[in-house]
């Protein structure tokens, strides 16, 4: 077991190294994209550019530049932005991370719970009108663009219906730290959570329904029935447990991607200054240190959540444990 974990950690570090080198090369070694020219500003004289190059160490060999940047990100944590000169990048990411994490984790709880409920009900009433209705609804959920849903939600909860009893509790857009007021934190995030969750509810409900229906054809389901289990017990105990594996796989990828900045649109629509928002801004201004920092943060999350999924996998399905 210990060797498995060590192997996994080595694997993670290797993946992170690969990603960081790749991103570094894309932004620093692409011909015609000299970062010094960007920092020096438009129409800067060659002398200015040269001075900037020296100042930022951009004239040194690429491996040194890469090592310096990694040192500034991970060890000294004093990497500064190229755009807002002097502003440190790492603390910004650390400030944005809890916002994104709050948004995605809350949404994830909602979508997992609701999707399992919908998937199980649809599979239980397969081919009936309940099943069809639920599947049409989830298809609608998948097809609605998240920024549109968010804008609509804002329109109703912040605008036209804000003064009705229904939505008068909704606080103004923006994030309230959990430590400041848990209640307000919850209220400010509830609508974004639902907005973000809708797409995934639709997706996961459909995947789970398909997996459940497939599992219900297995021999061991017939054994479970022959034991005298009720149809509900067969579905919830035997079939669901085996079908959740496909959902866990999806969840690991989706969660990592969202925490890593994939919730950008939701963050923008609801004015949440999360990692996605930060990446978005950095890309607009081509703020390379900021891009490096957010990309590395994001890949850490994707890789870590994948590792967690593998462990959860093994917990759910002993077949995976044995395969090692």
């Amino acid at each position: 077991m210990a060797s498995t974990i060590i192997r996994r950690l080595v694997h993670m570090v290797a993946v992170l190294f690969g990603i960081s080198v790749l991103v570094f090369l894309i932004f620093f070694a692409t011909p015609g994209a000299n970062p010094a020219e960007r920092i020096a500003g438009k129409n800067a004289s060659p002398q200015t550019v040269a001075r900037v190059e020296r100042q930022f160490g951009l004239n040194r060999p690429l491996p040194i530049q890469y090592a310096l940047m990694m040192k500034k990100i991970f060890i000294t944590r004093n990497l500064t932005s190229y755009v807002n000169l002097g502003e440190k990048v790492v603390p910004q990411v650390f400030k944005a991370a809890p916002i994104t994490l709050s948004l995605v984790a809350g949404a994830a709880i909602i979508w997992i719970v609701v999707a399992i409920a919908i998937g199980a009900v649809a599979a239980a009433f397969r081919n009936s009108w309940i099943d069809r209705l639920l599947m049409v609804l989830s298809l609608i959920g998948i097809s609605m663009p998240v920024f549109w849903v968010g804008t609509m939600a804002n329109l109703f909860t912040q605008g036209i219906w804000h003064h009705t009893w229904l939505f008068s509790w909704v606080p103004p857009l923006g994030y309230v730290d959990f430590s400041k007021s848990p209640v307000l934190w919850f209220k400010s995030l509830l609508i974004p959570w639902i907005t973000l969750a809708i797409l995934y509810i639709g997706l996961y409900a459909r995947v789970l329904r398909a997996a459940l229906i497939e599992t219900m054809q297995e021999d061991f389901i017939r054994t479970a029935r022959a034991k005298g289990l009720s149809e509900r017990q067969v579905l919830l105990r035997h079939a669901l447990r085996c079908s959740l594996v496909s959902v866990v796989t999806l969840f690991g990828l989706d969660f990592g991607v969202l925490v890593g900045g994939g919730a950008l649109l939701t963050e923008v629509v609801f004015g949440l200054q999360g990692v996605g928002y930060l990446t978005y801004q950095a890309l607009e201004t081509l703020d390379l240190p900021m891009i490096m920092a957010t990309v590395i943060y994001a890949s850490v999350f994707v890789v870590v959540s994948n590792a967690v999924v593998d462990i959860v996998y093994a917990a759910f399905d002993p077949r995976m444990r044995l395969r090692r």
Partner: peptide
């Protein structure tokens, strides 16, 4: 089912739930 009348099936490889 499983009480007074029990049943066993052909393929023991697939007749048991793999996760329990």
């Amino acid at each position: 089912r499983g009480g007074a009348i029990a049943m066993i099936f052909q393929d023991p490889m697939t007749a048991l739930t793999p996760v329990f």
